Simulated assay, not measured.
Amino acid sequence: MKRIILNTILQELERELSRLSHANEQSNKGAAFSAPNAEKQRDTTGVEAAFLAHGYAKQCITLAKQIEELKALEVEDFTGQEVDVGALVEVEMSGETDCYLLLHCGGGGEVTVDGKRVTVITPESPLGASLMGNIEAGSFSFRAGEEGIILDVC
């Protein structure tokens, strides 16, 4: 199941990369068209489009690297082990049960696989940091004393 979840996340990230690439392409076209056609000295449309294109390009590079890292990620079974990157963790907090996949990237993304909603968290996130190193059936503290229980780790 974890491989299916990871593949679904990869598909979402690849769609995002495609969207960002298209936005970068449009911004580059806007920058190239606006500069020679500026009507006034203070027309900054081309400069603004160039800044956007630069930002999109940086995001594309970062996201492409993250996608490659995820493709290379070994799918491990963390049953009976400490929570670490790659672990799928089911937790109960405030009477609600949620499922999280701990990864180095894609934090905040959500996918639904076989009717189960899985949220991607990173070790740098408050929840990810709280879960790291804990084991199944253990409790953890999160956000100013709120506590949770780790129901399952795989």
Rank of each mutant, 00 (worst) to 15 (best):
R3G: 14
R3K: 07
I5L: 05
L6W: 00
T8L: 05
L10N: 09
E12G: 12
L13H: 10
R15K: 12
L17P: 10
L17E: 11
R19I: 09
R19S: 09
S21H: 14
H22C: 09
H22W: 13
E25S: 05
K29V: 06
G30W: 01
A31M: 04
A32H: 00
S34G: 04
A35L: 08
A35K: 06
P36A: 05
P36N: 05
N37A: 13
A38L: 10
E39H: 08
E39S: 08
Q41A: 15
Q41N: 14
D43M: 00
T45K: 00
G46L: 04
G46W: 00
G46F: 02
V47L: 12
E48D: 12
E48S: 11
A50E: 01
L52Y: 11
L52M: 10
A53V: 00
H54S: 04
H54T: 07
Q59W: 09
Q59V: 10
I61G: 06
T62Y: 13
T62H: 11
Q66S: 08
I67H: 03
E68K: 12
E69H: 09
L70H: 12
K71F: 02
E74G: 00
V75N: 01
V75K: 05
E76C: 02
E76R: 07
T79F: 06
Q81E: 14
E82T: 13
E82Y: 07
D84S: 10
D84C: 08
D84I: 03
D84Q: 08
G86E: 07
A87C: 15
A87D: 03
V89Y: 03
V91A: 04
V91E: 03
M93V: 15
G95P: 03
T97F: 10
T97C: 06
T97R: 15
C105W: 13
G106P: 11
G107V: 13
G109H: 12
E110L: 15
V111N: 02
V113R: 05
D114H: 10
D114F: 11
G115A: 06
K116Y: 05
V118F: 01
T119S: 11
T119E: 06
V120D: 14
I121H: 01
T122P: 06
T122R: 14
P123Y: 10
S125M: 15
S125L: 13
P126I: 13
P126H: 08
L127H: 02
L127Q: 02
G128C: 09
G128P: 13
G128H: 13
S130N: 07
S130A: 12
M132Q: 05
M132Y: 15
M132P: 12
M132S: 11
I135C: 15
I135Q: 13
E136S: 02
A137D: 07
G138M: 01
G138A: 04
S139E: 15
F140N: 00
S141A: 06
S141N: 14
F142Y: 10
F142G: 02
R143E: 03
A144F: 05
A144S: 04
G145C: 00
E146N: 07
E146T: 05
G148N: 08
I150G: 02
L151F: 07
L151P: 01
L151M: 14
L151A: 14
D152S: 11
V153D: 00
V153R: 00
C154P: 12
